[in-house]
């Protein structure tokens, strides 16, 4: 199993190289073709046309597109994303500060989404044909019909304002100071520094944005799992189990669920990718200082080096999630492991 997983990860890593090259070229090209001027956005008063031309040269924008791309790619391979036009700081520094916040948020959102999706899917199946299924089915429709950013606003309104249960600004309460950043992941840092008050504050601040993200994936998981279970429940081995007198709940959990979970697992991989996209608006609404907020600043100011870097990092994260899901898929699906074995 471990060998097969390693083989799979290596295959995925090799495949990621051309994908990342294509994405980087595409993002680079599209940004350059937009009729927008990154330098003009930050030309200060007192600058002349000559200054403006000089600034274009200093950012390499006077060169041909292929030349610009190759220079950027060359630097990228050395771990240098270049300098931000707007922030006047290395892009790597900006990304390194924002990335842990987004990873932490998406991680929790992902976890919440999976828990709600699977438990909800099981509940829908167990209550099939009864009013419980109808209620749950209706709620998935509502969840899917409302976009994540609107959920974010509704959550703030109901759980932040009307019933002020959760904070909804930033990552930490105003009266608490950040621990010395060990990793940048505040959950980890507060745990490592043995600060329960920090940990509680961090989790409370993450609750609403993570829930807003989770709502984006949970209803789909619920519906797919319910459908898969409905198909699986008619399989011969389920009938055999029933004839053996196994209880209905045990049949569902022990026999039907492991098989029905496979399509759900594939969906989790796809939805995980979408979740990163959802962070852009959710982070802005919750004033959460992650990659999404950084992307908004970069787009508003047409800060090309930052947009390129964040887009590429999103791509790497999506590929990473898909690779992890593939490994999990391999672990839970014995047929795949058998296929991998030599005859």
């Amino acid at each position: 199993m471990a060998f097969l997983a390693l083989q799979l990860l290596i295959r995925r890593a090799l495949l990621a190289v051309p994908i990342l090259l294509c994405v980087s070229a595409l993002v680079f090209l599209v940004l350059r073709l937009l009729p927008a001027d990154p330098i003009a956005m930050s030309v200060p008063p007192g600058a002349t046309q000559a200054d403006y031309d000089q600034l274009r040269i200093s950012f390499g924008l006077d060169r041909s597109l292929p030349e610009q791309y190759l220079i950027w790619l060359g630097k990228l391979l050395q771990g240098d994303f270049g300098g931000s036009i707007f922030f006047r700081r290395p892009v790597m520094e900006l990304v390194a500060k924002a990335l842990p916040a987004t990873l932490e948020l998406v991680g929790l959102g992902f976890l919440l989404g999976i828990v709600i999706g699977i438990s909800g899917g099981l509940a829908m199946f167990m209550t099939r044909g009864r009013w419980g299924e109808q209620v749950l089915d209706g709620s998935t429709t509502v969840m899917m019909a409302i976009p994540e950013f609107l959920w974010a606003i509704l959550l703030i309104l109901f759980l932040g304002v009307v019933l002020p249960l959760f904070p909804f600004i930033g990552r930490l309460a105003p009266d608490l100071t950040l621990p010395v950043p060990l990793t940048g992941f505040l959950i980890l840092d507060s745990a490592l520094s043995l600060r329960v008050d920090l940990l509680a504050s961090v989790l409370a601040h993450m609750a609403l944005p993570a829930f807003a993200l989770a709502i984006g994936i949970a209803p789909l998981l619920m519906r797919v799992l319910r459908s898969s279970l409905l198909e699986t429940i008619h399989e011969d081995y389920v009938t055999q189990a029933r004839l053996r007198g196994v209880s209905e709940s045990r049949i569902v959990i022990r026999h039907a669920f492991p098989n029905a979970a496979l399509p759900t697992l594939s969906l989790i991989g796809v939805q995980g990718g979408f979740m990163f996209g959802g962070t852009v608006l959710v982070e802005m609404i919750f004033a959460y200082p992650g990659l999404g907020n950084l992307m908004i600043d970069a787009v508003r100011n047409h800060d090309l080096p930052v947009i390129q870097a964040v887009a590429l990092i999103y791509c790497v994260l999506v590929l990473g999630i898909n690779a992890v899901v593939d490994v999990v898929y391999l672990a839970v699906n014995p047929r795949l492991r058998l296929k991998g074995r030599p005859a």
Binding site: I153, I156, A287
Partner: peptide, 14 residues
């Protein structure tokens, strides 16, 4: 303390 809240709706809610 200055809280950076870009979204006007969130500023109102805060």
């Amino acid at each position: 303390t200055i809280e950076f809240i870009r979204d006007p709706t969130a500023r109102v809610a805060a």
